[in-house]
């Protein structure tokens, strides 16, 4: 279980997170929803170790992560597919995927997982020798998710995986998230598309200006009047 307790983060004089507490139990899909700038990405970035100055506690299976660097956190089995995809445009699709597996040493396992993500995303297999920068937006998003999977994470954090995708692709991405979860992996999902996220989430948190204002199961929040009005266009 991934557990965040009273997490505070500030940068440039902005108090971005003001005491976030949340839990992502093993094997569940947990989603964070909220407006732009509410602190969703900051939460994921802090868990991944990209934000150094933070207070509070982040533990995984009881181990404190707050002082670890990003590479060490990946080795603990927590991977982040960052906002904006951030694929390496000058490297081939295959090299991008190998980077995702950088923390691993089992070359046989890496080769097996390469096949596995190619099965999940057949388009990537077709384009495996192409430079990442030549892929379409949707393919780049798939590459970003596949790359995060290459570390064989127990906890997969996805930051806006559906951003900028055509509706049909959005559906694909969400069904792949469910498939990944069905294999026993925990998913911590940040989404603008609150409706789609809540539908697949076992548990959800609503963030507003750096605080959690509501939480409950996906179903509960889907039925919550405040959520409907603020995030579901009701």
């Amino acid at each position: 279980m991934l557990k965040v307790t009273d997490l505070h983060v500030s940068y440039g004089g902005i108090h971005a997170l003001q005491g976030i507490s949340l839990e992502a139990p093993a094997g569940k899909i947990v989603t964070l929803i909220g407006a732009n700038g509410a602190g969703k990405s900051s939460t994921l970035r802090a868990i991944a170790g990209l934000i150094k100055s933070k207070t509070g506690s982040i533990t995984y299976e009881g181990e404190e992560l707050t002082t670890l660097d990003p590479a060490a956190i990946v080795r603990r089995g927590i991977a982040l597919s960052p906002e904006g995809r951030r694929i390496f445009p000058h490297l081939s699709v295959r090299e991008n995927l190998l980077l995702g597996a950088y923390s691993r040493r089992d070359s046989a396992g890496i080769a097996r997982d390469m096949e596995w993500v190619f099965d999940l995303f057949p388009r990537l297999r077709e384009r495996s020798e192409q430079k990442g920068g030549t892929l379409s937006g949707g393919e780049q998003q798939m590459l970003a998710v596949a790359r995060a999977l290459m570390s064989r994470p127990q906890v997969l954090m996805l930051d806006e995986p559906s951003l900028g995708l055509a509706p049909l692709l959005v559906k694909d991405v969400f069904s792949i998230i469910e498939r990944i979860n069905a294999e026993g992996r925990t998913v911590l999902l940040v989404e603008q598309n609150a409706f789609a996220a809540l539908k697949i989430a076992h548990y959800a948190y609503v963030l507003e200006t750096g605080r959690i204002t509501l939480h409950g199961t996906g179903e509960e929040l889907l039925a919550d009047q405040r959520v409907i009005q603020a995030y579901l266009g009701g």
């Binding site: 170790g49 590479a71 080795r75 960052p82 390496f88 000058h90 950088y102 923390s103």
Partner: peptide
């Protein structure tokens, strides 16, 4: 190209 994302991949920067 991108130090931060490399760190996320587990590259010991």
């Amino acid at each position: 190209k991108d130090i931060e994302t490399s760190a996320l991949m587990g590259v010991p920067v």
